[in-house]
Design a protein around this nucleic acid. Structure first.
Length: 406
DNA sequence: TGAAATTGTCATGCT
DNA sequence: TGAGCATGACAATTT
């Protein structure tokens, strides 16, 4: 590996920008792209998840520049213990130990103890108004903050980058960092191998496997820099037309706080955390934004669940009411039939009674002129119809008067 | 390739 | 007054 470190390998058209004049990539950078703390652990053990790592290795090979075939057997370079060569035994132990404890809280403490420099970090936050410039995707548990060269702040994480161990903290957007900040200048002293190694070893925000990041869709990689309009504008306003807007937004910043932690911790703990870490106002604002967005994201998810449940409940209610309506319809038709039968019976009875009635002179009573009246006490009278009509009129008038008085 | 569904975010109002 | 929640609206992304 050390021999290869200075070997310049021409990238093929599969490189980040085939048309770019910066199409040479340092193999060391490439190896860094293709290497994660997980690899270090997996390569050094007989982990049963080896097949998993092989799968990832194959994926990694796909994203590996084609021209790496200039080397006798580039694949072999990625196998075996050679890859661990740049790391000391202590480093490997360190990696392994941390890999087993890569939960977010320990990442935070690790970063605070070993890697995180608030002052260094704060230099990326000198410009206020981070709210509108910030963009982040918290599907994953660990935060990665990026900042445009003009000062707009961004954040990115990758949902799909959950580690095989489910700890969700291995890997990081290092790919972005190298792509935007290092590949352009392989010899940049600021990106020295040693610094990168230190960064690699101590960066707890390494939450995305480089291979996954490299193979991720371009829009995923650029979400954090492309979406905010302010970032876009500030990046496009740059005078250097040779570099893309993403290159201008390439400066990466890491805050060793888990997004989940930021969002879910009690407000007292959150405020304590803010107070203890000597953050700038912009950083505090950023973290509060992250917390607010995280809370709101969960709220939106809950809101949508409730809305769906409400819709489902309403659909269920509609079904129940339709069933009830059908039942009532049946009942109504049954009642109507019963009423018809009763009416018919009553009519027959009426006719039968009148067919048997006779007046004083023995003549049949005309049913058109008389009606059968049943009083409340049970007595039955045969009354001329005109009397009934006049009585009914009087009754109706009485009712109307009562109603108007009432 | 267009439509529909999903998701994250913002703004706003309320507690 | 700050924090959180609920929700409509919008835009980007995914299906």
């Amino acid at each position: 590996v050390s021999l290869l470190e200075d070997t310049q390998v021409a990238t093929s058209t599969r490189g980040p920008d085939p048309s770019s004049s910066h199409c040479n990539i340092n193999l060391t950078q490439t190896l860094r792209h293709c290497f994660s703390p997980h690899d270090a652990v997996l390569l050094g053990t007989d982990d049963p998840t080896q097949s998993n790592s092989e799968t990832r290795h194959l994926q990694r090979q796909e994203s590996f520049p084609q021209s790496s075939s200039n080397i006798t057997n580039p694949g072999s370079l990625l196998h075996g213990s050679d890859l661990t060569a740049p790391f000391s035994a202590a480093d490997i132990r360190n990696l392994t130990a941390h890999d087993d404890n890569f939960d977010e809280i320990k990442l935070i403490s690790l970063a605070l103890e070993e890697g995180f420099d608030p002052i260094e970090v704060s230099q990326f936050f000198q410009e206020p108004g981070s709210d509108s410039g910030l963009y982040w995707n918290s599907g994953h548990s660990t935060a990665f903050f990026s900042i445009c060269s003009e000062g707009a702040v961004g954040y990115s994480s990758d949902v799909k980058s959950v580690s095989p161990h489910g700890l969700g903290a291995v890997g990081g957007n290092f790919q972005e960092h190298t792509k935007y900040g290092h590949v352009e200048n392989p010899g940049d002293s600021e990106c020295s191998r040693e610094a990168t190694l230190q960064q690699f070893l101590h960066n707890p925000m390494y939450n995305q496997l480089p291979s996954q990041a490299a193979s991720a869709p371009e829009h995923h990689q650029q979400m954090w820099v492309e979406k905010p309009s302010e970032v876009k504008e500030s990046c496009h306003n740059s005078t250097d037309t040779n570099l893309s807007s993403n290159d201008h937004c390439a400066e990466a910043l890491r805050i060793p706080f888990s997004v989940d932690e930021i969002v879910s911790m009690p407000v007292e703990s959150f405020n304590t955390m803010l107070a203890k870490n000597h953050l700038t106002d912009a950083q505090v604002s950023l973290l509060r934004d992250i917390r607010r967005r995280g809370k709101n994201k969960v709220a939106a998810q809950n809101c949508r669940k409730r809305k769906l449940n409400a819709i489902l409940n309403l659909e269920e209610d509609v079904c129940n009411l339709q069933t009830q309506k059908e039942s009532l319809k049946k009942e109504h038709s049954q009642c109507s039939r019963s009423i018809s039968r009763l009416k018919q019976k009553l009519n027959n009875l009426y006719r039968d009674i009148f067919s048997r009635l006779r007046d004083d002179q023995g003549r049949p009573v005309n049913p058109c002129q008389y009606v059968i009246h049943c009083s409340s006490d049970g007595s039955v009278f045969i009354i001329p119809k005109h009397l009934v009509k006049s009585e009914q009129k009087q009754d109706n008038e009485k009712e109307q008067k009562q109603k108007s008085d009432g």
